[in-house]
Amino acid sequence: MRPVRTKREPGEIFGPRMTLFADVLSLGVAVAVVSLPLVTLPAALSTACAVLRGVREDRPVTAARFLGALCRRLRPGDLAAGFLALAGLALALVDLALAGAGLPGGRAFALLAAALGTGAAVIGLRACARSESVDDWPGAVRGAARDAVRDPGGSALVVLAVATAVASAWMLLPLVFLVPGLLALALTAVDVRGEVRGEVHGPVDVCEKSVATREGV
């Protein structure tokens, strides 16, 4: 992972971190506008995460770059992912409504439906952050499911990020058009965190094997 720049470049008034924050806010507005049809939400969030990944290679985060990348990838598979996400949300809402209608065992069923819905949402959001989601949604979902099991801490961070985004939008409605960028940043950070942990653990395992071999000799 490349080191973060700490010096201001020509034209940067507040420094690179403030510039990234402003770029993320503009990216959030672009994601919110593009996601108004709802079926485009997974593709928009996935593209935003892909654009944010470019920060590690010093590529700028701009709304124009986001829109250009999104136009190249709005394929039937992306729209199908959107329809599937909407169907899952509708099913969860119907289940919760039925559970609250006074049916026997409704409270236990509501808790089970909420747990399953939360797990599915975490996997879906982590899939949007994976690089495979650009051209392989099934592969991204499988990888996200593995990550959800192997990295429960990252899944907890995703839940916390969503809760923070929802609370922010609820307290101040105009933030609805800004929080998608911050959510995409959080999802990307969680996914990159898992990659960095894998890069760190790999060399350590090799060293441990070499030490064990020398001790055996």
Rank of each mutant, 00 (worst) to 15 (best):
G216A: 13
V206D: 05
R150D: 08
D147H: 06
V158C: 00
T164W: 02
L103V: 15
G119R: 02
R56C: 09
A165G: 13
L89V: 13
L25Q: 15
D151C: 05
E195H: 03
V4T: 10
R75Y: 02
I123R: 12
A120H: 09
A121I: 03
R75M: 01
L84M: 08
A22R: 14
T164S: 10
L187D: 14
R65T: 12
R72K: 05
D151F: 08
G198T: 07
L38H: 11
S131W: 01
V4I: 06
A43M: 04
A144Y: 00
L41Y: 15
V196M: 01
L91G: 12
C207V: 08
A163H: 04
A156S: 10
G198Q: 02
D205A: 04
V122E: 02
V29N: 07
G54E: 01
H201L: 13
M18G: 06
F83K: 07
L38E: 09
V61E: 05
P10W: 11
A50F: 07
T6F: 07
R214P: 10
S131F: 01
D136F: 07
V33A: 07
G54H: 09
A22W: 14
V159F: 05
L25F: 15
A189P: 11
P138I: 01
A63M: 05
V176K: 03
A22P: 14
L79K: 11
R5A: 15
P60M: 00
A69D: 08
G117R: 14
A120D: 08
P16C: 01
A108S: 14
D135N: 03
L52A: 12
